[in-house]
Nucleic acid binder design. Structure first.
Length: 409
RNA sequence: CGGGGUAUAGUAUAAUGGUAGUACGCGCGCUUCGGGAGCGCGUAACCCCGGUUCAAUUCCGGGUACCCCGACCA
């Protein structure tokens, strides 16, 4: 991508009506734009990051047998009444159609997937099955806050699993935990993310959350560094002893819930009379699990967790571009390097702007946060080289021009 | 939903009961060119409705929007 043609520009001034770091920085760098409270446009840079996160999630979901579908965001009232959530689920956005029928914008999709799965699952031979989607969710929050961390419209990967027994659900539940940690590792959040015991809400006594430590988080958790587990403050009182290892090393931290997994049991299969036939011909309720993970919230969390005072430090797999190529004076060599890298399928943002000063280009590169910066100037050209610097390091390396493509292969 | 705050060019801000200023941005010109360059010229704004007043961006009332604290948060 030629930076001179990029739809967005960076700005020097901060939007005054945003105080959260993730929103300030993402807006300043041109990744997102705010339309209204808790409602954001994903601009070219931001959409690339969001898509990269979604791609990682897809890969890891597919690895544990997930099959992707896409359910509607617009849902009729009767499915919510079947589960008694039309009146009792406060964050539902409700609307009235031209036919005077009532609808809700999907806040979660148990009410859609359960009757859907019922159409195809009849026998124990059809189980287990794992279905997921990545979709925009709508929640009518009384107060949106903290940029991408709590929006009224946000993206969510929601996976639903269907089983013939609790044991089978338990086994898959563990598989999902492992897959989630792989996702957080690839998102650069692994060392700050803890499997957390939390309240189960309306479905069960407990659930598991994935909490990433950051001051921007809304939750407070107690963590044990030895066991790598955490407990959400919502289910315990002040505590300094880890229930797992018994050591009094519990410490209290602010964290953001980046994922949440539930054993739904028969909470949704019962109201929809969703049953299967076992090997002996008996009808049994299908056992369900659900597993949420929000790409847009993960994006905000990465910004909160991985930055310095100059800007964002994207992990390699997440960055909008792998390489930010900066030419300090327009020249044919820079164009050639850009074309060569592109031909080798290396994603490059090429700062080809002719009337922009070196300092501004460097500042933009730091702010946007691509993992590698390549500088080509008269100085480096004199040595038939370019300068390569990683975003998370101060060290520069001179690389011969004919070796540059190889370096990134 | 309770409490608090804010609303002026594209952005960030200043002042003012009577001509709305600055910086950045943007456009043109010249000089610059390795950490957000300099000079000159130009462009561009008072959230909405009502009240008080000779006159309201300013004061008052109402609305709307945004932000913060809390509550809420599958």
């Amino acid at each position: 991508m030629l930076q001179s043609k990029l739809f967005t520009k960076t700005t020097k001034t901060l939007p005054k009506d945003e105080t959260s770091f993730n929103a300030q920085t993402l807006i300043k760098a041109g990744f997102i734009d705010k339309l209204a409270a808790g409602i954001y446009t994903f601009l070219p840079l931001g959409l690339k990051v969001h898509n990269n996160i979604c791609d990682i999630i897809r890969e890891e979901m597919d690895n544990i047998g997930g099959q992707e579908i896409l359910m509607p965001a617009l849902t009729p009232r009767d499915i919510w009444q079947a589960t008694d959530r039309w009146e009792n689920f406060d964050v539902l956005f409700k609307l009235i159609g031209a036919d005077k029928k009532e609808y809700a914008l999907g806040a979660t999709h148990e009410e859609v997937i359960s009757p859907l799965a019922k159409k195809y699952i009849f026998s124990y031979k059809d189980l287990p099955v794992y279905i997921y989607q990545i979709q925009t969710k709508f929640r009518n929050e009384l107060r949106a806050k903290a940029g991408l961390m709590r929006g009224r419209e946000f993206s969510m990967k929601d996976l639903y699993s269907f089983h013939g027994s609790e044991e089978d659900l338990e086994k898959y539940y563990k598989d999902v935990q492992k897959a989630y940690f792989k996702i957080f590792k690839r998102c650069g959040l692994l060392d700050k993310t803890y499997l957390t015991y939390a309240a189960g809400g309306a479905f069960s006594k407990y659930s598991h959350e994935f909490q990433t430590l950051t001051e921007a988080g809304e939750d407070t958790v107690y963590i044990c560094d030895d066991c790598r587990i955490a407990i959400n403050q919502e289910i315990i009182k002040e505590q300094n002893v880890c229930p797992n290892c018994g050591k009094d090393k519990f410490r209290k931290e602010k964290a953001v819930e980046v994922g949440n997994i539930f054993k739904l049991g028969t909470r949704f299969s019962k109201p929809f009379n969703f049953q299967y036939t076992d090997g002996e011909g008996n009808k049994k309720d299908v056992i369900m699990g659900c597993y949420g993970l929000g790409p847009s919230r993960v994006m905000g969390t990465i910004v909160e967790a991985l930055h310095d005072d100059k800007g964002i430090i994207w992990p390699e797999e997440i960055a909008p571009f792998r390489v930010h190529l900066i030419s300090l004076k327009q020249n044919k060599q820079a164009d050639k390097i850009y074309n060569d890298l592109q031909k080798s399928n290396i994603e490059v943002l090429y700062d080809d702007r002719e009337e922009t000063s070196a300092g501004e280009k460097f500042a933009d590169a730091d702010l946007i946060g691509c993992p590698y910066r390549i500088i080509i100037s008269e100085k480096t050209l004199a040595k038939n080289s370019v300068e390569v610097k990683k975003r998370n390091s101060d060290k520069c390396e001179l690389i011969k021009i004919d070796k540059i493509v190889k370096l990134f292969n």
